[in-house]
Structure formats: C-alpha cells, structure tokens
Amino acid sequence: MKINAKDLSRIVSKYHDEKSSLIAVLQDVQEEYHWLPPEALRFVSEKLCIPLIDVYSVATFYRAFSLTPRGEHVVTVCLGTACHVRGAPLVLDRIRNRLRVEPGCTTGDGKFTLESVNCLGACALAPIVVVDGKYHGQTTVKKAAQIIEEYHTKRPKKRVTRRRKK
C-alpha cells in the first residue's frame, strides 16, 4: 500500500496536530483510503506524538475503523432489533452463504466486504441491506441474493478523492 505523506500531513494539520483529535484524524484517513494502512497509523502516531500502541488501541476499539483493505463493494446488513425481529438473521445468512465470507471480512477476489451494523435508525425499512451507501429496504431472503447479483456484474464507481478546502 502506497501512502501519500502529503495527504496525511494535510489531514493531521487540519486538526492543528492536537492529540484529542486522534479519532477525527483516523476517520479522515479512513475516508481517504477506505481502511487504515499500517504506514498511515505510524505516520499519525509520530505526527500527533501519541505512542503507536495507543493509536492501534483506538483503531481496534472503534467499530468504524478497518485494519484490512475493504472490497470494491461494501455490503452492510443492519442487525438492529427491528431488523432482527423482521428476519435480518436469515438475510445475513443468505448473503454470507452467497459470498462465502463472514461479516467483517472481504471476499477472496476483493469484490465484496460484508459488514454488519447495530442500527441505522431507519427501522421502518427493516430489514435493511446497504450496498455502497445505497439503502435496500424490506429485504427478503430472495431479494438479498438478487441485490448481490446486481452488484456482481456492476463495475465499481471510480473513487474520487475529495479535495478539501483549507
């Protein structure tokens, strides 16, 4: 993984090198690379003068951070209570069997990352499956497989690295 020191410097300096902004910095790094590469963690640790072990501890504690590269498409299954009682476990099972991958992992071909989330707060649409930020509400076991097929053939959108205003 190639990281760009200039991009990282820009992110860290946006927060005035403040230690308390570690979580925000990591969030921005993740937005840039879609995961937290080890080199980036080392860079952040040095820049913010926080021991690497503490940076690593924060990066592993919070669910939003990923320490492994993510697939082209991120499939998120909501497992909130409302989704649960309306059959989300069966939907997750179906997708898991279809992709042959456990939640939190990426398929061998790097095409899909399967994730679960505790609640998206859109319970009227339960059960919800989100693919690349697009919501698929009232998913059934049958629909779940169709959703995956739809993305299987689709080429991923080109990732545009957003330039932030200073």
Binding site: S20, I23, D54, S57, Y62, A64, N118
Partner: peptide
C-alpha cells in the same frame, strides 16, 4: 464531535474519554 461506532460511548464517562481522543 463524531463517534466511531462504539455503543459504550453513550455512557457519560466513556463519552468524555472519546471526546478526548482516547479509547472509550
């Protein structure tokens, strides 16, 4: 301040730690 996906951060002392940039 944006959280990073940890339920326990709803607890007030954990939330404070999280705002300080620490493990919640």
């Amino acid at each position: 301040v944006q959280g990073a996906g940890a339920f326990v951060c709803g607890e007030e002392t954990a939330l404070i730690a999280s705002i300080e940039g620490k493990v919640g």
